[in-house]
Structures are given as C-alpha cells and as structure tokens.
Write a protein that binds this DNA or RNA. Structure first.
Lengths: 113, 113
DNA sequence: TCAATTAGTCAAAAAATTATGACTACCAAG
DNA sequence: CTTGGTAGTCATAATTTTTTGACTAATTGA
C-alpha cells in the first residue's frame, strides 16, 4: 500500500503564486491597476479603510514581485503612478477566472465575518 | 475634485474569495482534490512539512466554505475522504489560469524565501 | 495485551500580517 | 510662514495564522 499507491504527484508553487496576489489589499490594488495607472492617493481614496502603511506594504510587495512598476511623475504636484508590468498583465486571466465565478460575493457579504 | 473625478469603481470581493484558496496549505489541498477524492493521511504524506493541525485547519476552512465535502467511509480501516463540491469544481478554472502562467515557479524557487 | 493504523483534538507558543499614531519631505498658494 | 496637497517612513501594538507537542479514540493484527 505504501509502495503500491503512487499517490498524486503535483507540485504546489501555487502557494507562492497566490501569495503575490493575496493579503488584505493586494487583490484590490491589482484590479485597479488593470484599468490603467493608479496613484497612491487614488488607491487610498478607493480603499478608505486601508492605512497608508498597509497600502505601502502592499505596493512594495507587488513591486518587488515585479507585478507593478512605480513611476515618479515629474509634474506640477509631483506624484507617483503604479503601472502593471508585462508580468502583471499575465496575471489578469487569473482575476478574470475569479470574476467569472457565479458565486462572487458582494462586498457586504464578504464583510459579514 | 472630490465630486468631479469619478475614479475607478470596482468592488473587491476578490479578497474574500482568494482567502478561500489561500493560506499555507489550502491551495495544495485544493489541487490534490481536483484529481479525485483525497484522504487525510494521503495529504499528510504529500505535504510532509504540514502538521496535522495545519491540515485539519485548512480542511475545515475548505469545508465550511463549501469547497470540499468530508465523507466518512465505513470500510475496513474506517477512513475519511475529501471531495470537491460543485462549488469547488467551479474554482478549478482559477487554478488553471494560475498554472497557465509562464513564470510558474518551481517548488524550489518558491522555497527560497 | 501491545503496537500500529486510521483521523483527528487541545492549549499554548511562535511567527507572520496588519494597524496605530506620530513624524518627514517636497512643492505651491495665501 | 503657515496651511494643504503630494507620498510616504518609522517604531510599536494588536491581530491573525501557523506550529508545537501532547493527548484521544476506534479498529486491526500479532
């Protein structure tokens, strides 16, 4: 039984991969970024419950995973834009698959914890 | 500016959803389960680094999210099988999208943390 | 009766994630 | 020269997740 049953052989790098997109704010930030470059303050206004620190952490993680790129824009009130990278763009189908689910809960449902 | 700029409107129930499939062991367990019913000890052997408690937690979470179903099999050495539910099956495309990524890291890479 | 296999439970500790609140630095307008 | 907007940092605290190590309980075989 121990030697006979070959058992299922599947590696599990999904853990690592999913980590890139999970956490309290990363999924949201990622999705915003798929719609075009986003700015720090903009994200902050979209996610009023998030603290600056929380957003900074999330953005830095996405950045170091090479999913988003941080660009300082040398304009009037000097701001920062976050863009999806090529790699980031490759992640979009994952989110599309998530959104294709029937049972996608509403924000309210998700909050009822 | 506050009233003018419509900003991007996207809800973010993805956080909730991704949570169902994340954590240290849930992604792996889920993927094993997509290949057919899995038993507790089998998972434990596939993921030798995981503790019983860790696996139990993960399984209970998947169960209470209605992603897997726990079935006690009344046979010789009385065991337990975990099956994907209908809802669980709906999650498969998400994993397929993940696995379709070019940069899927190997276990080794993922472990180099 | 002792040991092994099945599949866990439990309380506590450790580790990882997230939040808090204060502070920084640049630039522009009043 | 003070306020407001940009985008953060920092040390610490609270919370959540995961691990540790001991223990349970039913059944089977020696």
């Amino acid at each position: 039984m121990t030697t006979k049953n070959p058992e299922i052989i599947v590696e599990c790098p999904k853990e690592y991969l999913l980590k890139l997109l999970t956490g309290k704010w990363k999924p949201c930030i990622f999705r915003y970024a798929t719609q075009g470059p986003v700015r720090f303050g903009q994200i902050s206004r979209l996610l009023p419950e998030a603290t600056k620190q929380g957003l900074t952490n999330a953005l830095r993680e996405l950045e170091s995973a090479n999913i988003v790129e941080r660009r300082v824009i040398q304009e009037k009130p000097l701001h920062v834009e976050y863009h999806l990278t090529e790699l980031g763009i490759e992640f979009i189908p994952i989110f599309n698959a998530i959104e294709a689910l029937h049972m996608l809960p509403t924000r309210k449902q998700a909050d009822q914890k």
